Simulated assay, not measured.
Amino acid sequence: MDVERCGLILNVANFDACVSFYRTVFGLNELFSKVNGDFRLTCLEFGSAYLMIETGGVASAEEKTSAQSPTILRFNVADIQEAFDAIRKQDSKARLIRNDWGTIVRCTDPDGNPISIRESAGFVPS
């Protein structure tokens, strides 16, 4: 199989708020949008992949548990403090977590989907 591109589909309840969040906070550019009756989707660039945000999800006021959302979106950044300062404007519950393997910001999108932002320094893929 020759995979040409990969992506993630994220079903959300708060469609407009989630699209705005990923476009504004992470600067993801829109590839395209579609509407079919009550169904809506927006596809955003996600590095060399894509993040497709679609209606039909369930929101939570708190961070979703692993059972509610078994996937965590990960963004790597050069300046973790800058990322933390920026995300706190959107998510006052965001937290900076220092580990022996690196530092992350843990936050959520408007639907309560968990997000991890990691400093790129020290990240060595296997």
Rank of each mutant, 00 (worst) to 15 (best):
E4A: 12
C6W: 13
C6Q: 14
G7I: 09
G7S: 10
L8V: 15
L8E: 11
I9G: 07
I9W: 05
I9H: 04
L10F: 07
V12E: 07
N14H: 13
N14I: 07
F15R: 09
F15E: 11
F15G: 08
A17C: 06
C18L: 09
V19Q: 09
S20Q: 15
S20V: 13
F21H: 06
F21R: 07
F21W: 10
R23A: 14
R23H: 14
T24M: 09
T24V: 12
T24G: 12
V25Y: 04
V25R: 07
F26N: 05
G27Y: 08
G27F: 09
L28H: 12
N29C: 06
N29E: 14
N29S: 12
E30L: 12
L31K: 13
L31W: 12
F32Y: 15
S33C: 15
S33V: 14
K34V: 14
V35L: 15
V35M: 15
N36D: 15
N36P: 05
D38V: 11
F39G: 06
F39C: 07
R40K: 15
T42F: 06
L44A: 07
L44F: 09
E45N: 10
F46D: 06
F46W: 12
G47L: 08
S48I: 12
S48K: 14
S48H: 13
A49T: 12
A49I: 10
Y50S: 12
E54S: 13
E54P: 02
E54K: 13
T55F: 04
T55Y: 03
G56S: 06
V58A: 05
A59W: 06
A59R: 10
A59L: 08
S60R: 05
S60H: 06
S60K: 04
A61S: 10
E63R: 09
K64A: 01
K64W: 01
T65V: 01
S66T: 07
S66A: 07
S66Y: 06
A67G: 00
A67Q: 04
Q68K: 05
Q68R: 03
S69K: 03
S69W: 00
S69P: 01
P70D: 04
P70G: 05
T71G: 03
T71F: 11
I72R: 11
R74Y: 13
F75H: 06
F75L: 06
N76D: 13
V77A: 03
D79S: 10
D79K: 07
D79G: 08
I80T: 03
Q81H: 09
A83Y: 02
F84Y: 11
F84S: 00
F84I: 02
D85T: 12
A86Q: 08
A86L: 11
A86R: 11
K89M: 10
K89Q: 13
K89F: 05
Q90N: 10
Q90W: 13
D91M: 02
D91K: 04
S92E: 11
S92R: 10
K93P: 00
K93N: 05
K93L: 04
A94C: 00
A94Q: 01
L96C: 02
L96M: 02
I97Q: 01
I97G: 00
I97H: 01
R98E: 11
R98L: 01
N99A: 09
N99H: 13
D100C: 04
W101D: 07
G102Y: 08
G102K: 06
T103N: 01
T103A: 03
I104P: 00
V105I: 04
R106G: 00
C107L: 03
C107E: 02
T108F: 00
D109P: 05
D109R: 04
D109S: 06
D111P: 05
